[in-house]
Amino acid sequence: MKLSTELQAFEDRIGHDFARPELLVRSVTHSSVASPTRQDNQRLEFLGDRVLGLVLAEALLARDTGASEGQLAPRFNALVRKETCADVAREIELGEVLKLGRSEQLSGGRRKQALLGDAMEAVIAAIYLDGGFDAAKQVILRLWSKRIDSVDTDARDAKTSLQEWAQGRGLAPPAYVEIGRDGPDHAPQFCIEARLDNGEKAAAKAGSKRAAEQAAAKALLERLGA
C-alpha cells in the first residue's frame, strides 16, 4: 500500500516510517467510515492507551526515583488523560489526516477533543504493532517530552487541590455551576463557575465541561493565593 501525500507528511511529523502503512491508515480511520473491508481505529485505541500508559509510567519512575505512588499517580493521570492526548494530536495536526464520514466532518470532527484523543492512542498502537515497543516509546517520549518535564507543576488536579483547600478550612466541597454556553453545536464553549460556601467564586470557559471546571478551579485557587 502506498500512502497519500498527506499521510507521508504525517509520518514525518510523528517521526516513524511505517513498514506496514495499512496500520497507519487504520489508525486514522474513524468508525463513521468503517465498512466490512475498512476497519476503524477503535481496537487500536484500546491497545494504544495501554502502550502509552506503560511508556509514561516507566518515564516517571526513571525521572524521580524517590517519588511515592501518591506523588506519581497525579503526574501519570495528567500525562495520559484524553485532553493531553488531544493536545498532542493538535500539535502534530492529526485532525487533518483523519478519515471521517460526512456527518462527522460537518459537525467539526477534526477538532473534537474526544475524537482526537482516541485517534492519538490509535496512532501509538499502530507504531507499536509496526515497529515494536521501542519504536512506540521513542515517539511517545519525543511528543510528550515537554509535558514530562513540566509535569511536577501541571499534574496537580485543580479541582482536587481546591477541594483540599476548602476541607482544610472547614468549608464544604466546591460547587461547579454552568452559567453559560455559546458557540455552534459541533464546537460548544461552556462557562463554568467554581463556588465556595464562603462566597468566593471564579469562572472559566472551555470546550468541555470537564475542562471548564478544571479551569474555573484553577482560577479560584489563583484568586485565593493557594
Rank of each mutant, 00 (worst) to 15 (best):
Q214E: 14
V55R: 05
Q39K: 14
V28S: 06
E11L: 13
E121L: 08
D134T: 11
E93K: 14
A217K: 09
E96S: 14
E200R: 15
Q8A: 15
G183W: 02
C85S: 10
L54T: 13
L7K: 14
S150H: 07
S35W: 04
G70K: 08
E96D: 14
A215P: 09
G183P: 04
S31A: 09
L94G: 02
V28R: 06
Q42M: 06
T160V: 12
E200G: 12
A212F: 06
A211H: 07
A126F: 03
A158L: 04
A226T: 12
G117Y: 08
L98F: 00
L23P: 08
Q167P: 00
S31Y: 06
I92W: 08
R50W: 09
L129Y: 05
A175Q: 11
L116K: 12
C85A: 14
K99E: 14
R102T: 15
E6R: 15
T37L: 11
P21N: 10
D40K: 03
E200D: 15
L3V: 05
A59G: 10
K205T: 15
R20K: 11
A187C: 00
H16R: 01
E83V: 13
K137N: 07
G180A: 02
K159A: 06
R13G: 10
A126E: 02
G170F: 09
P36M: 08
K112V: 07
S27V: 02
P173F: 04
A67V: 00
Q39F: 12
G131Y: 03
R223T: 11
E104Y: 14
A219T: 05
L196M: 08
A78F: 09
L3S: 04
N198G: 06
A215D: 13
V55H: 03
E93H: 14
A158Y: 07
E96H: 12
D182N: 05
L106T: 12
A59E: 14
G48P: 01
